[in-house]
C-alpha cells in the first residue's frame, strides 16, 4: 500500500483532436511529495482534473490505494480522501472566510469521521484557519472572503482542502501570486503536513521552493511525460532544459 498509493496508468485525453495528455503513467508512494512541472499548456492541470474526476480520460486508469477511481464523479473521489486546490482561486465570496470551511466540514467524509455527531463547526473552522496562518485573534477569519487579499485566499483554499482531512492533497500552483514572504511562510506548513503523514502532489512554477521539498518530480511537455526522478536528477536532464527553459539555454 505504501508503495503504490496512487497509480496513474497510460492516461490519455484529447480535446477536439488536440492531445492534452498522451499516455502518461506514474506512481506515487504514500507520505511523499511529488512535484509536477512543465511549461504552460503542458497538460498539468488536465492531469489533475483527470485524477480528481473533473474530466474523464479517453483511456487509461487511475488507482488510489488499490481502488480503481477512473471516471468516478468528483465528489466521490473527494470522499475517498483526495483534496485539491484550484489554480484560479474562487472562494465562496458571499461567505465569511471561516464559513467557507463549513462546506467540506459538512461533507459525508468528515461526518463519518465524527460518527455523525458534530459539535461546533465554526470552532473547527477557525482552528483550521489558524493552522494555515490566519491570525486567530484578528478579525481576518470573520471577514467576507471577497475582501481578503490574494495570499489569504490561497491559504483559505488550502484550509478548505485540509478540512476534508485528506490522505492525498493536490496543490495546483499554490504559490503563484503569493509574495516571497507568504511563500516562505507557507513552505513550513506544507513540510509539517507531510511530516504528519500526508501525501502531496504539487504543480508549481516556483522551482526553487519545489525542488527543496519534493521527493520526486515529473516533467510534462505537450501532454507527454518527458522526465521523472529526484529533483537533482531532473534538473540536469537535457530534455527538460530544452522543454522548460527553451532550446538556447540548453
Amino acid at each position: 500500500m505504501r508503495e503504490n498509493f496512487l497509480v496513474v496508468e497510460n492516461v490519455s485525453k484529447s480535446f477536439g483532436g488536440v492531445k492534452a495528455i498522451s499516455n502518461v503513467s506514474f506512481s506515487l508512494s504514500g507520505n511523499s511529495l511529488l512535484g509536477i512541472i512543465g511549461p504552460n499548456g503542458a497538460g498539468k492541470t488536465t492531469l489533475i482534473n483527470i485524477i480528481t474526476g473533473f474530466i474523464k480520460p479517453d483511456s487509461g486508469r487511475v488507482i488510489f490505494k488499490g481502488d480503481d477511481i477512473t471516471g468516478l464523479p468528483g465528489y466521490k473521489i473527494a470522499e475517498k480522501g483526495i483534496a485539491r486546490t484550484f489554480q484560479i482561486v474562487r472562494p465562496f465570496l458571499h461567505l465569511p472566510a471561516y464559513k467557507n470551511l463549513i462546506i467540506p466540514l459538512y461533507s459525508k467524509r468528515v461526518k463519518s469521521f465524527r460518527g455523525g455527531r458534530f459539535g461546533d463547526r465554526d470552532t473547527v473552522a477557525i482552528d483550521l484557519l489558524e493552522e494555515v496562518g490566519f491570525e486567530r485573534d484578528s478579525s481576518v477569519p470573520y471577514k467576507s472572503a471577497s475582501s481578503l487579499p490574494h495570499g489569504y485566499l490561497k491559504r483559505l483554499e488550502l484550509a478548505r482542502c485540509l478540512a476534508l482531512q485528506p490522505e492525498l492533497l493536490i496543490l495546483d500552483e499554490l504559490f503563484s501570486g503569493m509574495s516571497m514572504s507568504e511563500v516562505a511562510a507557507t513552505v513550513p506548513i506544507i513540510e509539517k503536513l507531510k511530516a504528519e503523514g500526508l501525501t502531496l502532489i504539487m504543480i508549481e512554477h516556483r522551482l526553487r521552493e519545489l525542488f527543496r521539498i519534493a521527493d520526486k518530480v515529473i516533467v510534462l511537455n505537450f501532454g507527454e511525460k518527458i522526465a521523472e526522478g529526484k529533483p537533482s536528477e531532473v534538473i540536469e536532464n537535457e530534455l527538460v532544459k530544452v522543454a522548460y527553459l527553451g532550446a538556447e539555454s540548453a
Partner: peptide, 15 residues
C-alpha cells in the same frame, strides 16, 4: 450558497 458561488470547489470538498 457555496454551490452558487463555485460548484467545482464544492465538488472537490466531497459534496
Amino acid at each position: 450558497q457555496a454551490i452558487r458561488d463555485n460548484d467545482r470547489a464544492v465538488i472537490s470538498s466531497g459534496i
